Amino acid sequence: MRRGRPSKEQLQQTFEQVLASASEGRLVRTETGLDRPTRDALNAIARAHPNASEELVEESRSAFAGQLDGSNAARWREESDRKIRERAAQLKRSQ
Score class of each variant (00 low, 15 high):
N72L: 10
E79K: 14
S21E: 03
Q13N: 08
S21H: 04
Q13P: 02
S80P: 07
E79T: 15
D35I: 00
T14C: 00
G33M: 00
E78Y: 09
R39P: 03
R77A: 15
S80C: 09
A65Q: 14
E79S: 14
T14R: 03
L11P: 01
L56Q: 15
T38H: 06
F15I: 00
V18M: 02
A48N: 04
A44Q: 14
E79H: 14
G33W: 04
S62D: 09
G66F: 14
R61H: 06
L34A: 03
A48I: 02
A44K: 09
L34I: 04
I45S: 09
A46D: 02
S23Q: 11
N51Y: 13
H49C: 05
E24A: 15
R47K: 14
T14A: 03
G66W: 12
A73K: 11
S23E: 05
S60D: 01
S60P: 02
D40A: 12
S60E: 00
S23H: 02
T32L: 10
R26N: 11
W76G: 11
F64L: 04
E59C: 13
V28C: 01
H49F: 08
G25D: 02
L42S: 04
N72P: 11
R47I: 09
A65T: 12
E55K: 14
N51K: 11
L68Q: 02
S21G: 02
R75I: 06
V18I: 07
E58D: 13
L11I: 05
R75D: 11
D69P: 05
T14I: 00
Q67S: 06
S21R: 05
E16Y: 06
L42F: 07
H49R: 07
Q12Y: 06
R26H: 07
E79C: 09
E16R: 02
D35P: 06
D40C: 01
R26V: 08
E79L: 12
V28F: 00
D40L: 08
D69V: 05
D81K: 15
L19F: 06
R29T: 11
E78V: 09
A65S: 15
S23R: 12
R47V: 10
R29I: 08
R26S: 10
E58Y: 08
R75A: 15
L27I: 09
A44Y: 02
E16W: 01
V28P: 06
P37I: 03
W76N: 13
F64H: 08
E78G: 08
E54M: 10
S21M: 00
P50Q: 10
P37M: 08
I45F: 15
Q13G: 12
R61A: 01
R36T: 06
E58W: 11
L68K: 06
T30C: 11
E24K: 05
A63Y: 03
W76I: 12
W76R: 15
R39D: 04
S23T: 10
T30Y: 13
E31F: 09
A63F: 07
A41S: 15
T32D: 05
D35Y: 07
